[in-house]
Design a protein around this nucleic acid. Structure first.
Length: 293
DNA sequence: TTTTGGTCCTGGATGC
DNA sequence: TGCATCCAGGACCAAA
């Protein structure tokens, strides 16, 4: 499931192919992939030039020469794959059951390339949004509500901590709230909470500054480590632009490890149902009494 | 205004 | 073997 490190791996993979590329046509195979658009998605992109690829949290966007952005969210199972006109399986790939959208492009060298969007569970998609200037940056209007992510050089601890201290909800839910801090999903929230010895059900407004600072540090740390290993892949649902998996799943301490011994204390990892999804934690290291220190 | 829980969606895994 | 059910979870929305 793509969270911030996986999306950043995709952005890094796309950038050299897409910078300076011109859109020929866009073929939509599944309407859900463009469901957030009101206008003609394909028509508005005809002959548009892509300048570069940006990211905030789990959102990617292609900046075009018309001060417009193609905003992309991978959802749970979205994949972006670059293909050249010489790929032997290009035609066969067009029959792929999960292919939702295909860009035909001419890259900066004048060569034909293809950008495919595959999405098994169709939670992902893309839409057009005008770019607006905020704090000296150009951001798609549709994602102005998305907070800066912890790897953003302009991410600032104090505004996040102040907003967090006003939240009367559980810390895990707050970490997943993209308007507070973006890019954190279920996997990295569980991992950062384990590293911080904080139970996900602990109330956000009762955490001390010291613990919040440690938590932010651990969110950054786990994301940097995942990024270095190409992201987390459990199955074929997350791959980079070349179709390769990441290796960080081998380093997870709690996520997906129910009943296995905690790497720190040996107590069996437990699983809780939380917000219609699973939370993994160590009941000994992450008791509800911890978090105030 | 804030919190909370339901819904969307597909396909693999599991149980009967 | 075949069918039904469960499960995964990010974003959004509506009810409380």
């Amino acid at each position: 499931m793509p969270e911030l490190p996986e999306v950043e791996v995709v952005r890094l993979g796309l950038s050299p192919f897409l910078a300076g590329a011109r859109v020929g046509n866009v073929r939509v195979f599944h309407e859900r992939a463009v469901r957030r658009n009101e206008g003609d998605f394909s028509g508005e992109l005809k002959d548009v030039e892509i300048l570069h690829v940006s990211r905030r949290g789990k959102y990617l966007w292609l900046v075009t020469n018309g001060d417009m952005a193609v905003v992309i969210h991978l959802g749970m199972s979205g994949q972006l794959r670059m293909r050249s006109a010489h790929d032997a399986d290009l035609a066969q790939f067009a029959q792929h059951p999960h292919l939702r959208l295909r860009f035909t492009l001419t890259d900066s060298q004048g060569k034909a390339t293809f950008l495919d969007f595959l999405d098994q569970r169709t939670f992902g998609g893309m839409h057009l949004s005008p770019l607006v200037s905020v704090e000296g940056e150009k951001i798609p209007q549709s994602i102005l509500h998305i907070a800066r992510d912890p790897l953003d050089p302009h991410f600032s601890f104090n505004p996040f901590a102040q907003k967090l201290h006003r939240k009367k909800t559980e810390i895990k839910r707050a970490l997943l709230d993209q308007s507070l801090i973006s890019g954190v999903g279920n996997i990295y929230a569980d991992e950062a909470l384990w590293r911080s010895r904080v139970h996900g059900n602990f109330k956000a407004d009762q955490l001390s500054d010291v613990v919040v600072e440690q938590l932010v540090h651990n969110v950054k740390e786990v994301m940097h480590e995942a990024l270095e290993q190409g992201g987390t892949s459990f199955d074929s649902l997350y791959v980079n632009v070349n179709g390769e998996s990441g290796y960080f799943s081998r380093n997870l301490n709690v996520y997906g490890r129910e009943s296995e011994p905690c790497d720190r204390c040996g107590f069996p990892i437990e699983r809780l149902k939380f917000m219609n999804r699973s939370s993994f934690y160590c009941p000994l290291c992450q008791s509800l009494e911890q978090g105030i220190a």
